[in-house]
Design a protein around this nucleic acid. Structure first.
Lengths: 354, 354
DNA sequence: GAAAATCACGCAATCGATTGCATGAACGCT
DNA sequence: AGCGTTCATGCAATCGATTGCGTGATTTTC
């Protein structure tokens, strides 16, 4: 049984309902507006509602958007959805925005500046009501300009200096500090850092946190081995681990800026005959899925992806609801140290200490 | 240096350009339309183009959509973006649609019928020009109705009987057959199937393919052990593997409907003292990322996620371009057997055969 | 050189919903 | 009874781009 409105295969509009009920379209519009302020007779409202129901009316969002200048759509910019850390963020955003009637247009920037710029324009052309931007590139003026032009923006993972753009960040410094101290307390003194790309915010943030953690323990940060990977990828993990071992054979622990680098590092160590964790301790960051299936199970730091997305979306929702004044500029989410099997006391500590 | 148009913080419209150049808006519209058919003086076109450039004109897609009934947006329905097989599909779609000027609204159905129905309506309300649907549920009337109402639809992973909805599928039967024959040729005769949920299309498809492959080798399919997992998840893999070993201790190989089930099965076997592959061979399906880092490296079937998305998008693009007649209803993508370390000859074959 | 054809552009309606203002009716008040 | 309110609804403009049709001007044709 088809709905009546389907018969002529044409969308039912306010005008059709107006026709059917004998009132003016404006009256229909008001009757169907849930938060209407104009007074209407209950009888009329009821008749209109029933007619709308019967005809299978569905409001035309396009027309509405044109008039109201709101699309009930937000743009979500991420580097690459195939990177496993982003899907949970996307779902976190969705979990908040969808119930509010917002849809998301997700775009992948591939961390390319030009592409990012183009995508911001595309989103603006489509009239998104706001943009949630999981930033990775440092120094990226595009999104700042959009925000400056009055478009609501919330960033994830990066603070944009000199603006009041609200941002959500995970407490990466605390995470790095936690793993560093774990290693230090086990007796490690030759801790190397396999750093992420320094033109990405997370890469830089974690390197700084590493230096700070080392300084906290009164280690000579200048003497510490730090090798920067070109990408957050196993291949670079392997390459950089190799360089670390070459430059500092005394290294007993490698603190990696991310899980994939750590996996690469473990793999390289295995290849050169170093067992993890008995010969060398290696730590990751992010706690990506499936990690506990890969031996040695990586000790790492879990960050709240879903919650970060949800938090960003909540801020965005508040701004879009006109409560932009009340949203905090900074939101820091706690991280969790996940201790597994890739860390052990260094040989030296085992010999002397036990 | 700001663009001139930014100064008054208001979007530049055709009318503004018309004002600036002293022509009518309709002329501006035509001058800016790349595929215009109405003849215009080169001089006028040039002046309008320059003015548009200078004022920083960006067409209002909303207004355009209202008039033309095209939003240049498609809906992409997937079960769950956090499931690692979907992001590549999404990027495949994007790789084709974005250059054509289309944006995608991605929604997660969580394989729930009610939610799916709601999402189709949401997408229709937003006036998407078409829907690419990575189907998983069998018997799902919602999308068929949408297609019946004239909305262009392309499905991935499932054929909808009795319609002409184009679909892309991976050659799953060939994949199952390939692993089955690999096992058989090594000497396995007691091959169990750890099947996926039978209310999902892939679960059903692969089970049928398993039966067919067994029949091809003249095995008694009725006697074969087949256990259905409730979900495509490690936990169910463990549970079902346990059941298989209980019901048929003579089993020498488990052909799993997907990688995650296989990982669970391997884990369970290890726990009960069975080494893979020396005691039991286990195979997966999908070849998900990171698999080669998890020992024993799983022998599995690689399916072309990105390419499947791209192929679906190409069909959609063709339909949207009005060449709906020319698109093939069925597209089958080849799969690739990936031989790694989780398969070996059964003990019996090793004893008697070598 | 006049009629006809072509050309370049303007006019105005249209897409569907929203909303400030106008209007007519019902009502209350003195 | 007469006048001012209040109330429920209608009217028409508006959002910005698109497009069929019309019109005046120019060119072509015999």
């Amino acid at each position: 049984m088809q709905k009546l409105g389907d018969l002529m295969n044409k969308r039912v509009t306010l005008k059709d309902i107006a026709h059917a009920t004998g009132v003016h379209v404006s009256t229909v519009s008001r009757a169907l507006d849930p938060k209407r302020d104009t007074p209407l007779t209950d009888d009329v409202v009821l008749r209109i509602r029933q007619a709308a129901e019967k005809l299978g009316y569905r409001p035309n969002r396009i027309a509405s958007s044109l008039r109201t200048q709101r699309t009930m759509t937000i743009g979500v910019m991420i580097p690459d959805i195939t990177n496993m850390i982003f899907p949970p963020i996307v779902r976190g955003i969705e979990s908040v925005m969808e119930p509010l009637g917002y849809a998301s247009i997700i775009v992948n920037t591939d961390s390319q500046r030009g592409r990012e710029q183009r995508l911001v324009e595309i989103l603006q052309d489509r009239g998104v009501d706001g943009i949630i931007h999981t930033a990775v590139l440092l120094e990226d003026p595009t999104i700042e300009r959009a925000a400056g032009a009055g478009l609501p923006v919330v960033t994830l993972n990066r603070r944009i200096e000199g603006t009041h753009i609200p941002y959500i960040i995970n407490d990466e410094a605390a995470g790095i500090s936690a793993v560093f101290n774990l290693l230090y307390d086990l007796g490690h003194r030759h801790i190397a850092h396999l750093a992420g790309p320094q033109l990405l915010s997370t890469g830089q943030l974690r390197l700084n946190a590493f230096r700070a953690a080392a300084a906290d323990r009164r280690l000579d940060t200048k003497a510490m081995t730090i090798v920067e990977a070109a990408q957050f990828h196993e291949t670079d993990g392997r390459r950089s681990a190799s360089e670390i071992l070459l430059r500092a054979p005394e290294t007993t622990a490698i603190l990696c800026a991310n899980d994939r680098l750590a996996l690469g590092a473990i793999d390289h160590c295995r290849k050169v005959g170093l067992n993890c964790p008995t010969d060398i301790s290696i730590t990751g960051f992010n706690d990506m899925p499936l990690l506990e299936l890969i031996p040695p199970r990586l000790t790492t730091v879990r960050i709240q992806q879903f919650e970060a997305g949800a938090a960003a979306a909540r801020l965005m929702a508040a701004i879009l609801a006109g409560q932009g004044e009340d949203v905090p500029v900074e939101t820091i989410l706690p991280v969790l140290l996940v201790e597994r099997d890739s860390v052990a006391a260094p040989r030296s500590a085992r010999v002397t200490g036990r």
